[in-house]
Design a protein around this nucleic acid. Structure first.
Length: 363
DNA sequence: TCTGGGGTCCTAGGACCC
DNA sequence: TCTGGGGTCCTAGGACCC
């Protein structure tokens, strides 16, 4: 019998900030870009549960979050604390938590900074696995004073959906024979892979829950989503992968930057792009790669239209200088009528390298 | 609402080759 | 003369995830 748990930390970044700053305990906390008094251009990374009461959640424009916080304050609510993302600190906490997780499972797959899959099959029965999940939650709470939610099921897909079912501080067990009925009432959006676009398309067709999708045939789903529809046919029945994947190596490395103001100042944009290239080249080296063969430039215009231009290099390259030359060559046409006939200002520029070649490993 | 930054994966068309 | 079927590489765009 295969038993997989998915562990998901609750409001991870915001929970760490709240833990480390007791004077903010219970107050709304928003971790994300600088709100700049409501003029900031970023988004919310994580909001704690007190902030979610005001409709502030991940991916919300930070300017909107700011406005909602001001309105809450005007109604006599508490002040909202806005904080920058402190990735280094969250990474340290994540590392310690993953060590605890590793001690509780036969195998672990870290899925992101605050998520992991555990293989608990060695425990043989569901009650033992559930008890292990409870112990793990207690251990993380004791060691880090942070809560998490866990889903336990026969594969990664159902475990992930289950971990999201009762948040925060939840534990949801879905045994194989319960999977179809567990999934049926859930909103289609809970299914990994169904994002805003697919959700819209499905709901326009009157398919609101996963149960509605269970009624559709393979042909129906193929008609809507092509090849992926056949996968979805299996997924809505609770079928999915249970093998945990091992070490992850990046397939691309890049950086992008949204400017404070839209601009067509070629000198400024060129300097920013050059800085990104230097940083990306350094990351390629630190990541243990000998080089890259493709350079991709991303440009976002003021109206949010986003385009990419890429170039396959004749041979493997690794220096910041080459990367800069290639990136600037791809950028240049956006300053003249060829690529930018209306002389639109740029909102964002980014550079990414692909086709990375790993350094041969020494035994 | 006015939309970050880090990524992955898939599709599709055209060029080119057999 | 009017016409095949693949396969692979390159490029661009888009959906999605955390």
């Amino acid at each position: 019998m295969v038993m997989i748990a998915h562990l998901d930390m609750d409001a991870f970044f915001a929970a760490i900030e709240e833990r480390d700053n007791p004077r903010w305990k219970g107050m709304p906390i928003v971790v994300g870009s600088d709100p700049q008094e409501g003029r900031g251009r970023g988004v919310v990374s994580t909001a704690n549960y007190a902030a979610r009461k005001y409709g502030i959640r991940s991916a919300l424009p930070i300017s909107t979050a700011w406005r909602q916080a001001q309105e809450a304050l005007a109604r006599g609510g508490p002040e909202t604390i806005f904080l920058p993302v402190n990735g280094r600190r969250y990474g340290d906490v994540s590392h310690r938590i993953m060590e605890i997780v590793g001690a509780h499972a036969a195998a672990v797959e870290q899925a992101s900074v605050d998520e992991a899959y555990l293989d608990l099959s060695h425990l043989k029965d569901w009650r033992a696995a559930e008890a292990a999940c409870r112990r793990l939650k207690r251990e993380i709470l004791r060691a880090e004073r942070l809560t998490c939610s866990i889903g336990l099921a026969a594969n990664k897909l159902v475990a992930k959906i289950a971990s999201d079912f009762q948040k925060p501080d939840g534990l949801t067990v879905v045994r194989p024979r319960e999977a179809i009925r567990f999934l049926a009432p859930l909103d289609v959006r809970r299914m990994p892979g169904i994002g805003p676009k697919a959700e819209q398309a499905l709901k326009r067709g009157g398919h609101n829950t996963i149960g509605d999708l269970q009624q559709l045939t393979e042909a129906d789903l193929w008609g809507m989503f092509g090849e992926w529809g056949l996968e979805l046919y299996e997924m809505v029945r609770g079928h999915g992968e249970s093998a945990l994947s091992g070490e992850w190596t990046p397939k691309s490395i890049g950086e992008q930057e949204t400017f404070d103001e839209d601009t067509l100042d070629s000198r400024f944009i060129g300097e920013r792009l050059a800085a990104m290239c230097a940083s990306v080249a350094a990351q390629v080296r630190r990541g243990g790669f000998t080089g890259f063969r493709r350079v991709v430039l991303t440009v976002r215009f003021a109206d949010f239209r986003t385009v990419t231009r890429s170039h396959m290099l004749p041979m493997l390259e690794h220096t910041a200088g080459t990367l800069k030359t290639e990136a600037l060559r791809l950028l240049l046409p956006f300053f003249d009528r060829r690529e930018n006939p209306r002389r639109s200002a740029l909102r964002l520029v980014g550079v990414r390298v692909e086709e990375l070649e790993e350094k041969p490993r020494r035994a």
